[in-house]
């Protein structure tokens, strides 16, 4: 009896302590974000939402936030545009040099960030792409390509390719087969892949520190500078908001999985 109690308690205790260990620092940040005063401190003397107001009203924070969204969105779009056709080609065809091309695609995964950051710093300097959003977008897309290519390849591997033949036998060419069969069935996993690309860029700091400059400063870069120079409590605000967004996205994804797919492709087809 005791041993059974123990065996059911121990994993629970472990899970709780690990969860606590991971969440506790996060909770501290949440608490600090509501703290009063101009520098970070724990425990706060009083609670206000002053720092939130500062964050949402100062251009010094809003511009990098917007920059980050634009850069992450653009690099996610580029990443999907590059990796999706590549993953299809790798899933469907055998061509000479396939392994070499795969190796090239995976390359950025093997190079340390700091090495890539330095390389981009010198290379983009010559191309006049330093301190520009375009430069950061390109660098971040290169970073996300291998990861998203892997995700897209896995998605396509589990796809039932006889559906493509069935669609062709029904009279649909490649384009309409992609539009009405592949896309609706793969859309959820494409979205997840896009989300990964977005987060890869949004979260990236090292390269952004080297090449984004003042003009194209991203949110992580701004946070880094803020902590280093002023220990501004707004950093805690940003962290709290990011944490909230991630939690919300995770909940929405889990909820949508539960609800199941309800869209129908033929309804799209009918509309035309």
């Amino acid at each position: 009896m005791t041993s059974r109690l123990q065996s059911s308690l121990i994993p629970k205790f472990l899970a709780l302590s690990i969860g606590g260990f991971l969440l506790l620092p996060m909770l501290l940040v949440v608490v600090m974000s509501f703290g009063e005063g101009t520098s970070l401190r724990f425990p706060p003397r009083a609670f206000t939402i002053d720092s939130y107001i500062v964050y949402f009203t100062s251009a010094g924070w809003m511009v990098p936030t917007l920059n980050s969204f634009i850069i992450a969105g653009a690099s996610a779009a580029i990443t999907l545009l590059v990796t999706t056709p590549a993953a299809f080609a790798f899933a469907l065809f055998d061509f000479p040099g396939k392994r070499l091309v795969r190796l090239l695609i995976m390359m950025p995964l093997m190079v340390p960030f700091i090495v890539m950051a330095l390389a981009y710093f010198f290379f983009f300097g010559q191309l006049r792409l330093l301190n520009t959003m375009v430069g950061v977008v390109i660098a971040h897309a290169c970073l996300a390509v291998p990861i998203v290519f892997l995700i897209q390849s896995a998605n396509l591997k589990s796809f039932d390719w006889t559906l493509v033949r069935a669609s062709q036998a029904c009279g649909a060419g490649h384009f309409r087969t992609f539009r009405y069969i592949c896309l609706p069935l793969l859309r959820p996993s494409f979205l997840v892949a896009g989300l990964f690309a977005f987060i890869t860029s949004f979260d990236e700091t090292v390269i952004a520190l080297f090449i984004s400059g003042r003009a194209a400063s991203t949110l992580p870069r701004r946070m880094f500078e803020s902590v280093r120079q002023e220990s501004d409590p707004v950093v805690a605000v940003v962290s709290t908001l990011l944490f909230a967004v991630v939690a919300a996205v995770a909940i929405v994804i889990a909820w949508r999985r539960e609800a199941g797919r309800s869209r129908s492709a033929t309804r799209d087809l009918e509309r035309e």
């Binding site: 039932d160 006889t162 559906l163 033949r165 069935a166 669609s167 062709q168 036998a169 029904c170 009279g171 649909a172 060419g173 087969t177 009405y180 069969i181 609706p184 069935l185 797919r261 869209r263 129908s264 492709a265 033929t266 087809l269």
Partner: peptide
């Protein structure tokens, strides 16, 4: 190409489109 031959095809594993109802499959 296959989609212009106007040949009907039935596969061993059915190959129905999972995101469409029976009606939509036949209507496709």
């Amino acid at each position: 190409p296959a989609h212009r031959r106007n040949f009907g095809m039935v596969f061993q594993n059915y190959a129905l489109f999972p995101h469409m109802t029976a009606f939509e499959n036949v209507a496709y």
